[in-house]
Amino acid sequence: MLKTNTEIVKGYKEMNIPYTLLSVGENSKSLSIFLPGAGYTVRSPLFHYSNDIFLNKGFDVLQVNYQYNDKVYAEFSMEEICEAIKYDVRTVLDIVLQKTSYENFYIIGKSLGTIAMSSELSRDIFEEAKAVWLTPLIQRDDVFDAMVSSTNRGLCFIGDNDHCYIEERFIQLANNSKIIARLIPNVNHSLEYENNTVESIEVLKSVITDIKNF
């Protein structure tokens, strides 16, 4: 039976940061952490289906539901949003991990979420965590450097029609033997084709299958 626990913590500048912890069993030792994008939420397809996969494997799933598209963040610069997400994710994880005893971790970050992911993977507790990078912001040095030097087993998906895609940087991070890097031709920042719904669903199926098998 699915158990859902939703809480709100005070994050950066005392903003409310909701999070939800889902579990199907008692005292799971495995946790999957979802760090969505600014507009790509945990209800969006990649996270929706990943959620089912991990719950079916007996993982607890932690969804960090920051809302940086909300008007309260309207005056924040991009750099302040970046500081906020790192602070907010760290705050949520500290609270959750303080109450639990997980031993096995997956961290799945999409777009903006990969900024916090890059920071969190440096923590000792996540030394053996598996990392799933969905459309990482490789144009940013912090994300790119974290991926190039990462010692975590990783799985990366990005399209060459993504505004964040930089061929030279993708080649460098793909040379990291710890990361399986998937470049999907002609898909955008949502890992979708602009005008081909059926083919977009095929991409979704492929990505979810790879995550399931990772």
Rank of each mutant, 00 (worst) to 15 (best):
K3L: 10
K3T: 12
N5T: 10
N5V: 13
K13S: 05
K13M: 11
I17S: 12
T20D: 01
L22R: 03
S23L: 08
G25S: 15
N27S: 14
S32L: 03
S32M: 07
I33T: 11
L35T: 13
P36D: 09
G37Y: 04
G39D: 04
G39M: 00
T41D: 07
T41G: 05
V42Y: 10
R43T: 13
P45G: 06
F47G: 14
Y49S: 01
D52A: 02
D52R: 13
K57V: 03
G58R: 00
F59H: 10
L62E: 08
V64L: 04
Q67N: 12
Q67S: 07
N69P: 01
D70T: 04
D70R: 08
V72Y: 11
V72Q: 15
Y73R: 11
Y73V: 06
S77L: 13
M78P: 04
E80S: 04
E83D: 12
E83T: 14
I85R: 01
Y87F: 15
Y87C: 14
D88V: 11
R90A: 09
R90I: 08
L93F: 05
D94Q: 14
D94L: 12
Q98A: 08
E103C: 01
E103W: 02
Y106F: 15
I108M: 10
K110T: 02
S111F: 10
G113V: 04
T114P: 13
A116V: 06
A116F: 11
M117A: 12
S119C: 06
E120Q: 15
S122C: 10
E128Y: 07
K130H: 06
A131H: 03
A131I: 15
V132R: 02
W133V: 10
P136V: 01
R140M: 15
R140W: 07
V148I: 05
V148G: 01
S149K: 07
R153N: 13
R153V: 12
R153L: 11
G154P: 02
C156Y: 11
C156Q: 04
F157G: 07
N161D: 09
N161V: 00
D162T: 03
H163V: 12
H163T: 10
Y165F: 15
I166N: 07
E167D: 15
F170N: 08
Q172E: 10
L173E: 08
L173H: 09
I184M: 12
I184S: 04
P185W: 04
P185F: 01
N186W: 00
V187M: 02
V187S: 00
H189I: 02
H189E: 14
L191E: 08
N196W: 00
N196E: 13
T197I: 15
V198S: 14
E199C: 03
E199Y: 01
S200E: 02
V203F: 03
I208Y: 03
T209D: 02
D210L: 10
I211L: 08
K212N: 07
N213D: 15
